[in-house]
Structure formats: structure tokens, C-alpha cells
Design a protein around this nucleic acid. Structure first.
Length: 596
RNA sequence: GCCAGCGUAGCUCAGUGGUAGAGCAGCGGUUUCGUAAACCGCUGGUCAAGAGUUCGACUCUCUUCGCUGGCUCCA
């Protein structure tokens, strides 16, 4: 139902404001379409909704747009808004709407899909659009807006259909809010993990090595070592065993596992050795299944939790790569848990609780769990063809989540090929949502690998398998953490934890003594021994986001103390080295974010 | 992979159909300094790669590679 937007007084002002903005953004999309139509009379129109912070509209045009077109479209929009034409809603039969929009094939397609007998159209100035509404009453209500970029977008999101040209814009109710938003866009560029990764010398990509194949620099190596240490300690505590497996395997293994039928398009092409085809592994599971099958298993062995930081390779289309977030070589915090059906609920929930344990350490608060289920239309194509097991395991996951009061959302058609999964969606500090951790059920591979164990009655039973990667891959986790912390890692992860800054060269001996003391405590410490001014060294340590700076000059040497500057700029009281060591030890041991 | 844009020194960026520039970084000196940039000098480039147009291409055209923003796809 179209609704003329007025100002109801009985509504929550915040909700009302949000809705009013959405309506205004949607109307801005129509105005943009009108502007485009006036420049390209033959334009064909796709859809033009409001989105977070703004709007877009998809067009089919006689030529490609370039960024240079945006100012003239913006100017035209300004003229349209100045005319303040009313948005007029008309309801009519589909037949009449088809005649009116006869030159608009995309609109005709949309009309065909509307179940109702009548449809609504909105008219403003010279532009008419099929639209559910609502809209502003007149174009003059559209306030501060800006067109940001153009992009290709497949009609209806289908890569087999034509690619339209999309223009994105942002719109706010005041100029202040708009410039605030534009400022924020500038700010988040500084927090981009690709920029921070280069500045802090965490990782690089090299054209000759290849796209999506990161090289970890020494600083990145330290962070990865720390994360692995955490994973190994935690997994030991939770009863996991560690294995190691090769990067390659014969074709037959991946045929058996189901990767070749269901996952081939994400795998690198095979290589042939002595007449046998080998594939680089996209996942570790088949290898772990072989380890499970390497001897007779009893119910007493279960749950068997096999863990490995396995390196996997996946072919991602070139346009899909994104810094560390989407790569082609990755090290996964992988494990496969083999358990009986009765153990499943508890094991599955234990993995979810493991996520929460990690998220607490990394101070990750913005996330939600997503139950990704199959869609029947994908059976035998995307998904292993066993409808009964899909329904059964999806229900088992729901029960495991519900009985532990863990909230989740369901997403149909997002499952892995071998079973449903819980994905943990996190929002990075710069607003992008990623699947970080994952917890997957596998009902298919136990059968294809003929995995079994002897139960209490001495009968053979199939285990269920849980694939899990709570710490994601090193690549995605470090990429996420770079943005999450803005490069200012907590001390336990910081590549350099303490920089000692001698005021003048004569303080170098004392600085070296401090370095030796801290180093023997396992603290990652460096002396900035350059013949430079102290303030330059402080600046350098600040830019490197080193948590602690120890400034030492005549005063410190004389009193055998250290002057502690935090990277926040805060100054701690002068103290003995022993006292500082105590602080650092505690902060590292607690994996604390606070430096004091 | 698709659409568009971009690619100049290690980094950030100027620049032009007629001999390639700056700041920072690096290197060599001078300076020995108290909480975010001392001073002087030097080095550093097949202007992403290849082909074409032109008397002459870093600049114009084409192809390839890479990156960026989206779309599609995903840990």
C-alpha cells in the first residue's frame, strides 16, 4: 500500500527519522533516474532502491558512464529538485502499466512478477516509474546528496543476465550529516587493512608471486605465531590432537570426498605426475578422514578431535580477491571432530562456546551467528543429494543451538556441499561484514570414506563429522584484526612490544641493559639506537603503534628508572625496570587490551 | 570472470607529443638533543609489460598483467 508520508506524532522519533530518510533516499534514486533520462532519452531502467546511507539505480545506456558523468547528473538532479515537482502516485491495471512502460523491458519483467491485479506507479516531472513507494511528496524534500561511484551490476544479480550500469549515491537530511559521512569515508580508508598492512610491514603482495598469494613479513609472522600459540594452547585444553598433512593429493581422494563433483570450480587444475593426476587441496578434511580411518576406532576414541593449521589453496575469481580478506592461499585454523550422534549436540555447542571464548580475547562484540541451510533446488548440484539427512542435520543444529540458548539467524541456500553450518558473521571496524568463523556439519563424507567405529554393543556405527575453524584463516583473521584494532594491536600481538629510546648516545649502554632485561623476560623489545632526536624516535614508535616507549636520559640513568610513554600519548609515573616488567608481563599474560 | 577507473622512485604524489620532478624513506656527513619530524649532501626510474601511430610516445591507439570500486562468488 502506498502511504503518503506525513509526520505522525505518535511514532518513536528515531524510527520515524530513519524511515523518513529511507523514503527520501528512495526518492533521490527516482530523481537521479529522471536526470539520467534527460541526458540519455533511450535509457532503460532497472531497479533503484534506497540502501544504507543512500541509494542506487541501475540503467542500461547507449554508452558506458565514466566518473566524469557524475557531476552533470548531479547538476541535473539539482535542477529537478529546485523545480520541486510533486511525486504523484497512480494505481492502474497491469495492462495499462505495460502499455505505459512498453519501452522498458526490465520494468515489464517486474510487472509480470507482481501477483496483484493492479500496480502502482510514481510520477515526478517527466519521469514515471513502476514503484511500490512510498515517496516524499515533492522533490524539494530531497536535501543533501552526492553521487559517489558507478559500477557494473548484473540484472537481478544473475551473472548470466545483462550487466547494467549502477550509480551509487548517498543522501542525508542536512549538509552537515552529508559532510560528516564523507569525512567518515575518508577516515575508514586509513583503517583499511591493506593500507595498515603495508605501513606496519605485516604483509605484501607481489605481482610476480601472484594475486591472492600474500607474503607475510616478519611482523606478520610474529602475529601469526602468537595466534597459533593461542590456538594450540586452547585446543590442547579442549582435548584436540594435532596432525600434519600434505598440500597435494591424488585425484581419487577428492573424487571420494565429493570435492571434485561439488567444489571443482574453486580448485586449481590438476597436475600430472607419472600418469597420475594430483590436486592441491582446497580443504584439509579428506586428509583428516584418512587419519580417522587409519585404524579401527572404538566409541572410546570418540569424540576424536583432529586439528591442523592446514594450508589450502582455492581458486577465487580475480575480481573477488580483496587484500587478506579474500585470498587464494590460506592457512586455516582447521579441525574435524568425529563423534557419535548422541555426542553431536554437546560437541557442536562446545565449538560455538569456543568461538565465544576467542571473541572475548579479541574483544569482538559485533557479530551474529547464521545457520546456513540447503535449498532443495541445489540437491545433486551444489549439495550432496540426500534430502533426509539435510533435514535431519539441520534440525540437529537447531536443537544444539536452542538448547544452549544461542541466538542465530537462518539463511537458506548458504550451506556447505556436505552439510549445514553455523557461520559467524562479524562486522569489521570499517563496516564490511565477513564470515569469520565457521562450524559445519558433515553427514556425507563419513559414508563416502566408509568411516566407522565400534559402539558399546560391538556394532559398527557411522560417526558424524563437525568441520570447524573458529579462528578462521590466518589471512582473514589478521586482516580483520588490523581493521578491528586500527593497527594498534594489544601487547601480546604487537610485533614490537617495547621501544627503548635513549635521549642521547651516552644513554645507549643503559638502554641496552634495559633491552637485555626485557628480552630475557620474553618481551619483544627494540632499542632505537640511531643518532637522532628523541622526538623523532617517539614519532617513529607512534607511527609503528608500539605499545610502550621507554625514554631514558640522564635522569633515568641516575635514578635507575624508566620513563614510560604509552602509544596513547599517556605518560606513566617514573618507575623501576622491575615494576615496568611486572606490568608488561601481566598485560601480555592476560592478553589485555588496556596497557596499564 | 563481468562493468568502470587507475598504474610515474621503496612509500605518498606532481608533470608533459620534444632530455623525468617533489616530499618522506635509504645512504654519507654534521648535530648529542627530554615526549609526534634537526641540518647539509648523495643515491635511486626501461614512467607496469608488449605492439602500433608519429620525425619523436611517459603522454595517443590496441593487447596483456596488476590494483581500486562495484556485480557475481566466498573462510
Amino acid at each position: 500500500m502506498g502511504r503518503i508520508l506525513t509526520m505522525p506524532l505518535d511514532r518513536e522519533p528515531e524510527i520515524d527519522k530513519k524511515e523518513r530518510l529511507e523514503v527520501m533516499r528512495h526518492s533521490a534514486a527516482h530523481v537521479m533516474a529522471e536526470a539520467v533520462q534527460s541526458i540519455f532519452p533511450d535509457a532503460r531502467f532497472g531497479i533503484g532502491p534506497s540502501i544504507e546511507n543512500g541509494f542506487y539505480y541501475d540503467f542500461e545506456l547507449p554508452r558506458s558512464l565514466t566518473p566524469d558523468d557524475l557531476p552533470s547528473i548531479e547538476a541535473k538532479m539539482g535542477e529537478i529538485i529546485a523545480l520541486n515537482a510533486g511525486f504523484i502516485r497512480e494505481e492502474m491495471t497491469k495492462e495499462k502499466a505495460r502499455r505505459l512502460l512498453a519501452a522498458q523491458p526490465y520494468k515489464l519483467e517486474l510487472i509480470d512478477e507482481i501477483p496483484d491485479e493492479t500496480v502502482s506507479l510514481y510520477r515526478q516531472g517527466s519521469f514515471v516509474d513502476l514503484c511500490r513507494g512510498p515517496h516524499v511528496t515533492a522533490a524539494g524534500e530531497i536535501k543533501a546528496f552526492k553521487l559517489l561511484n558507478i559500477a557494473g551490476a548484473y540484472w537481478r544479480g544473475d551473472e548470466h543476465r545483462p550487466m547494467l550500469q549502477r550509480i551509487y549515491g548517498v543522501a542525508f537530511d542536512t549538509e552537515e550529516a552529508l559532510s560528516e559521512h564523507l569525512l567518515w569515508l575518508e577516515e575508514i580508508k586509513k583503517r583499511d587493512h591493506r593500507k595498515l598492512g603495508r605501513e606496519l610491514e605485516i604483509f605484501i603482495f607481489d605481482d610476480e608471486v601472484g594475486p591472492g598469494l600474500p607474503l607475510w613479513l616478519p611482523n606478520g609472522g610474529i602475529i601469526i605465531e602468537e595466534i597459533e600459540k593461542l590456538a594450540k594452547e586452547t585446543e590442547l585444553k579442549h582435548g584436540y590432537v594435532r596432525v600434519r598433512t600434505p598440500h597435494l593429493a591424488k585425484e581419487d581422494l577428492f573424487k571420494r570426498s565429493g570435492h571434485l563433483p561439488y567444489y571443482a570450480e574453486s580448485m586449481y587444475p590438476p597436475m600430472e605426475i607419472e600418469g597420475v593426476r594430483y590436486y592441491v587441496k582446497p580443504m584439509n578434511c579428506p586428509m583428516h578422514h584418512k587419519i580417522f580411518a587409519s585404524k579401527t576406532r572404538s566409541y572410546r576414541d570418540l569424540p576424536l578431535r583432529i586439528a591442523e593449521y592446514g594450508t589450502c589453496y582455492r581458486y577465487e575469481k580475480s575480481g573477488e580477491l580483496l587484500g587478506l580478506m579474500r585470498v587464494r592461499s590460506m592457512q586455516m585454523n582447521d579441525s574435524h571432530i568425529y563423534c557419535s550422534e548422541t555426542q553431536f549436540g554437546q560437541e557442536f555447542a562446545a565449538v560455538v562456546f569456543l568461538y565465544l571464548e576467542y571473541f572475548k580475547i579479541f574483544d569482538i562484540k559485533e557479530y551474529y551467528m547464521r545457520l546456513s541451510t540447503h535449498h532443495p533446488s541445489g540437491l545433486g548440484k551444489k549439495y550432496v543429494n540426500n534430502s533426509a539427512m539435510w533435514l535431519k542435520t539441520e534440525d540437529m543444529v537447531r536443537r544444539a543451538m536452542d538448547s544452549n540458548n544461542i541466538p542465530y539467524r537462518e539463511a537458506v541456500d548458504e550451506a556447505a556441499f556436505y552439510g549445514p553450518k553455523i557461520d559467524v558473521q562479524v562486522k569489521s571496524a570499517i563496516g564490511q561484514e565477513y564470515t569469520l568463523a565457521t562450524n559445519q556439519v558433515d553427514f556425507a563424507q563419513a559414508e563416502s570414506f566408509d568411516l566407522k567405529f565400534a559402539n558399546e554393543k560391538g556394532q559398527e556405527e557411522r560417526p558424524l563429522i563437525i568441520h570447524r575453524a573458529p579462528l578462521s584463516t590466518h589471512e582473514r583473521l589478521v586482516g580483520f584484526l588490523l581493521e578491528h584494532y586500527g593497527g594498534a594491536f594489544p601487547v601480546w600481538l604487537a610485533p614490537v612490544q617495547v621501544t627503548v629510546i635513549p635521549v642521547a648516545d651516552r644513554h645507549l649502554d643503559y638502554a641496552r641493559k634495559l633491552e637485555a632485561g626485557l628480552s630475557s623476560e620474553g618481551v619483544r623489545v627494540k632499542v632505537d639506537a640511531r643518532s637522532e632526536r628523541m622526538s623523532l624516535k617517539i614519532r617513529q614508535a607512534q607511527l609503528d603503534k608500539v605499545p610502550y616507549m621507554l625514554v631514558v636520559g640522564d635522569k633515568e640513568v641516575a635514578t635507575a628508572t624508566v620513563s614510560v610513554r604509552l602509544r596513547s600519548g599517556e605518560q606513566l609515573p617514573a618507575q623501576s625496570l622491575a615494576s615496568f616488567e611486572e606490568t608488561v608481563r601481566t598485560v601480555i599474560a592476560d592478553k589485555a587490551r588496556d596497557l596499564k
